[in-house]
Design a binder for these strands. Structure first.
Length: 695
DNA sequence: GTAGGGTTAG
């Protein structure tokens, strides 16, 4: 092998001694031109390939575009010694670092074409990185073929880069084959393979791999922990998650913001909101991702008020929210039915020109639909540049729950025409549409078509929709037979759907049967007893009705407290039945009395079937009048500007008494009232409801 | 001479 001879060594001994020169140093950034000039002047630049390489590297290492172009001129124009492979490598790395992928690619091709240049393991590692960046499996395979031909597959940098290339181009299986074949795996390889599974959302495999690492004592670093902690959150593996949390605290890694954010996310997803929050509060600096992680933690844990409160704090801290943050806060608004707050979020999105991504747009559609503003939902839907099956599904479900079944079905057929593949959830929306609008035949057809035309196996939720569809349409026996023929074991949701249909249809026999089934699975749900009792009462079997209520009382089954939410000036107020917490309770009760008095004149007769059990008969009327909805409506009448729509959302289904009362209130007070219950919307106007009393 | 990470919807 030829050895590069330093020109100084070739100088005859008799010649005058050369002045002492500093050894080729890597110049500090910014001193490149001076170094360049010095080397030119001494003649070393062209005489010493090593010096040229150092200068090139010094120039290429700089971060600025000016320095990179300096390096390119040095490389292309010279004066310089003949180019070596390391020089090419230096420039290629610089192109990659600067994100000039095309230039890097051209340089690589140039190397392959040059007669005297043989790309080495450094080049190959670089080229593979390039393939990962441009996500080109084909190019990556080509580079691998070259590496094999040149016997470079023993180099651990080449192997790591190759594993990374396959993993980031989506071929995790190929990455895994290579990975498994390597005996001595370093952190790079472990992180590359973990990142591959991470990218594919294969959280379980990420966790498995890490457990394997711990077993064999493989090395890991903070980046490994970020991926694994995130995966623990997604798989709810709180044991491993806590182990990582403890490790991070012990090893004093809490200064790593990404890692702590991953832990915040992990704790929140494992249900440890308190732990997540204390980590979050202890962070030295919180960027938008950290805030978003904590906010989404609250939203996903159904602590929506906390999510919105934290968003306010984020604004006080002057951290600009991004599209991801807005997704979480809008979902929170959707859950709370906080229309005004959500509208503010929407205008904020517009004002800040945040990108209307598919996810954000879908969240907006869902938000408006869940607030009963179906027209705004349609507007948001139409404004989206890109929609996917989630977007269509959100609107279909929104239409369905707002009682616009026909339109939901039309949307579904437009969706199919647009070649957007429906999913299992889409069909839940379609079946809900049929069920809420009494479209029995269409429902049957869609249910069959789902399996036959789309190969989607019905889940228990789909069966539930069909039971609901048949039962509410009065086809109780068919619904019952349908349940008996189900290939999967019916759960309480299925039997409950049947029971509530029986309550609507006053069917004692099947109702008793459904009740028995429910009790055998879960006897703790107060609503079931109420429904059966109501069925008895509706056919005049008062003794049986009373017996069921006594049974419930004896067993100590508590009614789930009814809760209604109403938003006023961006603040969400919560009302519970017999609420005793509100500062203006007296005025609210007076307003309720006024309301009841006025609607009685219009024909309202209290229905005490849903009254509390622990009061005597004459108090029941008062008890019913203090249902959370009536308190919230009274509050709305007191506080909202005249004529404004009263919107509330509640945790249970609307009871019969509140339903008939609200219809009359809408007429007597000439107000639109929109109530979202746990299943659907009721738009009350002029004494009638959009559900046509079918709910 | 190597790579890499955290937040989002029906």
């Amino acid at each position: 092998m030829a050895t590069a001879v330093h020109p100084a060594a070739a100088v005859p001994a008799t010649a005058a001694p050369a002045p002492p020169r500093p050894p080729p140093v890597r110049a500090a950034l910014g001193h490149v031109p001076q170094l360049h000039a010095a080397l030119l002047k001494s003649g070393e630049l062209t005489a010493s390939p090593k010096s040229f390489h150092s200068l090139l590297e010094a120039a290429a290492h700089g971060a600025s575009p000016a320095q990179l172009s300096y390096a390119v001129r040095l490389f292309r124009l010279g004066p310089r010694p003949p180019l070596s492979v390391p020089c090419y490598n230096v420039l290629m790395r610089a192109f990659l670092r600067a994100g000039h992928l095309e230039d890097a690619l051209h340089l690589f091709v140039e190397m392959l074409d040059a007669a005297s240049i043989w790309p080495d393991q450094h080049t190959v590692a670089c080229a593979l990185k390039l393939c990962s960046r441009i996500v080109s499996l084909d190019a990556g395979r080509g580079v691998q073929a070259y590496a094999v031909k040149r016997g470079l597959m023993v180099d651990r940098f080449v192997l790591s880069s190759l594993i990374h290339m396959y993993a980031s181009c989506g071929d995790v299986a190929a990455a895994r084959l290579l990975f498994d074949a390597v005996e001595e795996k370093g952190v790079f390889m472990w992180n590359a393979i973990i990142a591959g599974y991470f990218r594919n959302g294969d959280w379980k495999e990420v966790v498995q791999l890490f457990k394997g690492m711990l077993e064999v004592g493989a090395p890991f670093d903070e980046v490994t922990l970020v991926s694994v902690a995130t995966a623990c959150g997604r798989t709810c593996d709180s044991n491993l998650g806590k182990w990582i949390g403890g490790y991070v605290e012990e090893k004093v890694m809490l200064g790593n913001r990404n890692l702590v954010t991953a832990l915040v996310d992990m704790y929140a997803k494992c249900g440890e909101l308190g732990k997540a929050r204390s980590l979050f509060d202890g962070m030295q600096s919180r960027d938008v991702v950290a805030w978003s992680a904590m906010i989404s933690g609250y939203t996903q844990a159904d602590q929506c008020q906390e999510a919105l409160a934290l968003f306010s704090e984020m604004q006080v801290a002057e951290v600009e929210p991004n599209d991801v943050t807005m997704v979480s806060v809008l979902s929170a608004c959707a859950v709370l039915g906080a229309l005004e707050t959500g509208k503010w979020m929407h205008s904020h999105i517009r004002k800040k020109c945040l990108p209307l991504t598919v996810v954000l747009g879908t969240t907006l559609v869902d938000f408006y639909a869940k607030c009963g503003c179906i027209d705004s939902a349609v507007e948001a839907f139409e404004s989206m540049p890109v929609k996917n099956s989630w977007t269509w599904t959100a609107l279909i479900k929104g239409m369905a729950s707002n009682g616009r079944g026909r339109e939901a079905l039309e949307l579904f057929s437009s969706m199919c025409k647009a070649s957007i593949e429906p999913t299992d959830v889409t069909f839940i929306g379609v079946l809900m549409a049929c069920s809420h609008s009494g479209l029995v035949e269409e429902g049957r057809q869609h249910f069959d078509s789902m399996t036959q035309d789309y190969g989607i196996q019905p889940r228990i939720e789909h069966y539930g929709c069909v039971v609901d569809l048949l039962g509410r349409a009065g086809l109780i026996d068919e619904a019952y037979q349908f349940i008996r023929a189900m290939p999967i074991e019916p759960n309480t949701v299925i039997w409950r759907a049947l029971l509530s249909s029986c309550a609507v249809q006053k069917n004692v026999e099947v109702g008793e049967e459904a009740f028995k089934k429910i009790i055998s699975l879960d006897r703790s749900h107060s609503g079931d007893y109420t429904l059966l009792s109501n069925i008895y009462a509706s056919v005049g079997r008062w003794k049986d009705a009373a017996m069921i209520r006594k049974e419930m009382k004896d067993m100590g089954i508590q009614k789930t407290p009814g809760c209604s939410l109403i938003e006023l000036d961006g603040v969400v107020f919560e009302f519970f039945a017999e609420d005793s917490d509100h500062p203006q309770l007296r005025e609210i009760y007076e307003k309720v009395e006024e309301m009841i008095g006025k609607i009685k004149v219009a024909g309202y007769v209290p229905n005490t079937a849903d009254a509390r059990l622990d009061v005597d008969e004459c108090e029941k009327e008062v008890s019913v009048s203090h249902h959370s909805e009536k308190l919230a409506i009274a509050f709305g009448l007191m506080k909202l500007r005249p004529g404004a729509t009263i919107r509330l959302s509640k945790n249970l289904r609307v009871c019969t008494d509140c339903h008939s009362a609200t219809k009359l209130i809408s007429k007597v007070y000439n107000r639109e009232i929109v109530v979202r219950d746990r299943n659907r919307f009721h738009h009350f106007k002029d004494g009638s409801c959009s559900c046509n009393d079918y709910w």
